[in-house]
């Protein structure tokens, strides 16, 4: 029996066993929020119990609403996560300051083995974060690479301007390559024209600048989301260089150290 079918059977016949099977997920989610400072370590078990209680009450609606599109385990993980957040909200209405605490120092040593392996994992995670932008992924890749002055490939441009011929693509690439390292305004103008061509909507210099800045902020937030890492715009740029140029070895050592320190 495939694992999803087995879990589905438990959902309908023995939800208690299913809960036992998924207990490690609840534990991990609560621990994640303990590590981020959202939950007091002393309250950890109380949170686990509250989430399990709420989950049991939701079993009938889960049976009804689960349509077998995702894995049941993943679906229940989203429910555990949402229940955990709801419980935090209920319990912490009056002390939101905790939510914004810096992660405790021990997190840094726990997460940071300062190794190339960790950086590789971060680069991989960065790739996942980029792919999460769905229909906007092609645009994001293109604009980020252009902004970080990473050479573009014709295929990446074609993914954004789907109906462009090779001649037009070469022309855009040539223009993009000749933008000076320091000349962001010209780059934004050029990307604005490109977005008018690809999406048919207004793309002023300022709109492009804002769009890129906001997407970088989004990426920083996604990279740090409940992970205890402290990425910044600078480290995201380093990850982007590593991700978009996998064979690229020219990262300067001081910049690499900065990335290690942040992890």
């Amino acid at each position: 029996m495939d694992p999803n079918a087995e879990d589905l059977r438990l959902l309908h016949t023995d939800p208690g066993a299913l809960m036992g099977k998924y207990l490690y997920l609840v534990d991990t989610i609560v621990q994640m929020h303990v590590s981020s400072g959202y939950i007091d370590p002393e309250d950890k078990q109380e949170y686990v119990h509250q989430i399990l209680d709420a989950f049991i009450q939701r079993i009938p609606s889960i049976r009804e609403q689960y349509n077998e599109r995702s894995m049941l385990r993943t679906y229940c993980t989203t429910i555990f996560r949402n229940l955990c957040r709801d419980t935090i909200r209920q319990n912490h209405r009056t002390c939101t300051a905790r939510v914004f605490q810096e992660p405790p120092d021990f997190m840094v040593t726990y997460i940071s083995p300062l190794s190339e392996l960790v950086i590789r994992q971060e680069v991989e995670f960065f790739g996942k974060a980029v792919s999460l932008f769905g229909k906007k992924e092609h645009k994001l890749r293109l604009f980020l690479k252009a902004y970080y002055r990473i050479p573009l490939e014709p295929e990446e441009l074609r993914a954004y301007v789907a109906d462009a011929g090779m001649k037009e693509l070469q022309s855009w690439l040539k223009e993009l390559r000749t933008v000076d390292e320091e000349d962001d305004p010209r780059l934004f103008d050029l990307l604005g024209r490109l977005s008018v061509r690809a999406e048919g909507k207004h793309g002023s210099r300022e709109a492009v600048r804002k769009w890129i800045r906001m997407r970088i902020n989004d990426l920083v937030y996604l990279m740090n989301r409940s992970r205890g890492t402290r990425h910044t715009e600078e480290t995201v740029q380093l990850l982007a260089e590593r991700y978009f140029l996998p064979g690229h070895k020219s990262l300067e050592q001081p910049r690499m150290n900065e990335l290690k320190i942040r992890l």
């Binding site: 994640m32 932008f133 769905g134 992970r227």
Partner: peptide
């Protein structure tokens, strides 16, 4: 896909669930 292209809140939820599954070796 279209929604994920626009909604940071959902992107955050998705990446967090992915992270939990990865941390627990539960990826599909």
């Amino acid at each position: 896909q279209e929604h994920l292209g626009e909604c940071q809140e959902c992107r955050e939820a998705v990446i967090e669930v992915y992270q939990i599954l990865r941390d627990t070796d539960s990826l599909p």
